[in-house]
């Protein structure tokens, strides 16, 4: 087990370095003045530019720049944004909101996806199964931002069941609508994946053996079919965290959630390149760390891989 964790850690480090290097290289290794180039035709005040120039050590050779950038990233010295506000402080304020949104979305897709997928798989070929299958395709096909507008309009405005926009009052209750939108697409994927793996496991030899032992149907379903079906589902949920972050940009924009996604979106609209790079780097860090956690969870779920060569 410790071997496995060590090996995963060793694999994660080059990925993280490579990804941040890629981001940094694209932005700062190009000819010309990267700071000015990043702002397009609406440059901020000279004092902000000066602060950024210092932040990114542009007078140093590239590798030193990158090293200092990494050091800054790990010490959360992320520089200032368009208005001269330190980005780290802003992130500290808005990150919990996005974390809450993502957690709620993750819970929605995991719980409902697994439940629906399990029922559909157990009733393969029946009406419930075929309905859910077609419905899930439709959910996958409708883009998040369209889904967001539709639910905002119907549930938020016309029915008035939930607040159409969140504003500064983000909590579990007000986030329910954006979290549903964010989780819905992956919900469909989780459902289909659970269904497929339930069907596969239902026909597995060990499930037949479990039945032959005299176990009751609920025990066979829970301890053998569902338990084993969780392995690919957890892998998917982990790999999909990145999609959740991308989705958060759109969702937070639509529902006016004061989170990282909205901040990022505003930075994009206002052509604040350095802010975008800083926030994306932090998100990549979070994404890589989250994936590592999922890998550990995966090892716990599937004892075989702890011993894999």
């Amino acid at each position: 087990m410790i071997q496995y964790i060590l090996r995963r850690l060793l694999q994660v480090i080059p990925v993280f370095l490579g990804t941040t290097l890629l981001v940094y290289f694209m932005v700062f290794a190009l000819p010309g003045d990267p700071i000015r180039a990043l702002f397009g035709d609406r440059p901020p005040s000279e004092s902000v530019i000066a602060a950024l120039r210092q932040q990114y050590n542009l007078d140093q050779p590239f590798w030193v720049q990158y090293g200092l950038f990494l050091k800054n990233l790990f010490t959360f010295n992320l520089g200032v944004d368009f208005t001269g506000q330190p980005i780290a402080a802003t992130l500290g304020r808005i990150f919990p909101v996005t974390a809450m949104l993502a957690a709620e979305a993750l819970a929605i897709q995991a719980v409902f996806g697994v439940a629906f997928g399990l029922i559909a798989g157990l009733r393969k070929g029946k009406l419930f199964d075929s309905t859910v299958l077609v419905a899930s395709l439709v959910v996958i096909a409708v883009p998040t931002f369209v889904l967001g507008f539709v639910l905002q309009l119907v549930v938020g405005v016309q029915l008035g069941w939930a607040k159409p926009t969140v504003g500064s009052t983000a909590d579990w209750g007000t986030l329910i609508l954006p979290a549903t939108v964010l989780g819905l697409v992956s919900f469909a994927y989780v459902l289909r994946l659970t269904r497929a793996s339930v069907i596969e496991n239902m026909n597995a030899d060990y499930v037949r053996t479990a039945t032959a032992k005299g176990l009751s149907r609920p025990r066979v379903v829970l301890a053998h079919i569902l338990r084993n079906s969780m392995i690919p589902v957890v892998t998917y949920l982990g790999a999909n965290l990145g999609g959740l972050m991308g989705g958060a940009i759109v969702t937070e924009g639509i529902f006016n959630v004061p989170g990282v996604g909205q901040k990022l979106y505003q930075a994009v609209i206002r052509s604040e390149g350095p802010t975008v790079v800083a926030i994306v780097s932090v998100l990549v860090l979070v994404f890589v760390a989250a994936n590592l956690l999922v890998d550990l969870l995966y090892a716990w779920l599937d004892p075989r891989i702890r011993y894999e060569k």
Partner: peptide, 15 residues
């Protein structure tokens, strides 16, 4: 009772 054919696939790998 039953003893199945393939010992590789008849025990649940996660328990």
């Amino acid at each position: 009772g039953m003893v199945p054919q393939d010992p590789m696939s008849n025990l649940n790998p996660v328990w």
